[in-house]
């Protein structure tokens, strides 16, 4: 698959109660998706500071999908805080000339196999089109991000 080889790596931050089992359900169904997708298990993605995302892009990750439990989040109020934080990350990405579509916040449940595949497919198209994030950066990162 030439197209996927060219595509940069996609990082998925998947909640252990919903999205991570959802990704495993895709595996159980033997539904194929691009191999440039790497899934990390999290308790709640509210954990990650803004800079974490920026640094991922700096390290060469081309796209990030946060797969949360959405409003069904077992940690009350965490999803809302996360959503606000991601807005700030988008802002920081724009400032750095990073295409904000490289980052997506979504909710995936334990059996949302089709939604998972759709998200991955869409992000793969985006990163294939955009290329690696390094090429995109126009200005130097502000000091606070280091």
């Amino acid at each position: 698959m030439l197209a996927t080889q060219k595509a940069g790596k996609i990082l998925i931050l998947a909640t252990e109660s919903c999205a991570y089992p959802g990704a495993n359900a895709v595996g159980q169904a033997h539904s194929s998706y691009p191999e440039n997708v790497f899934i990390l298990r999290t308790r709640a993605p509210v954990l990650f500071p803004e800079r974490f995302y920026i640094e991922c892009f700096e390290k060469g990750i081309s796209g990030i999908i946060i797969m949360s439990c959405g409003v069904e989040c077992p940690y009350h109020g965490a999803y809302e805080v996360l959503a606000r934080r991601i807005d700030r990350v988008f802002e920081m990405m724009r400032k750095r000339g990073l295409d904000p579509t490289r980052l997506r916040l979504t909710a995936i449940c334990t059996v949302c196999t089709r939604a998972f595949l759709k998200e991955v497919q869409q992000m793969n198209e985006i990163v294939t089109k955009l290329g690696p994030p390094a090429a995109e950066r126009t200005d130097t990162p502000p000091a606070e991000a280091s």
């Binding site: 109660s17 919903c18 089992p21 439990c69 069904e72 449940c109 334990t110 059996v111 949302c112």
Partner: peptide
């Protein structure tokens, strides 16, 4: 409107 599977599996 919780996903039934998601709250039953745990």
């Amino acid at each position: 409107l919780d996903c039934s599977s998601c709250i039953t599996t745990p």
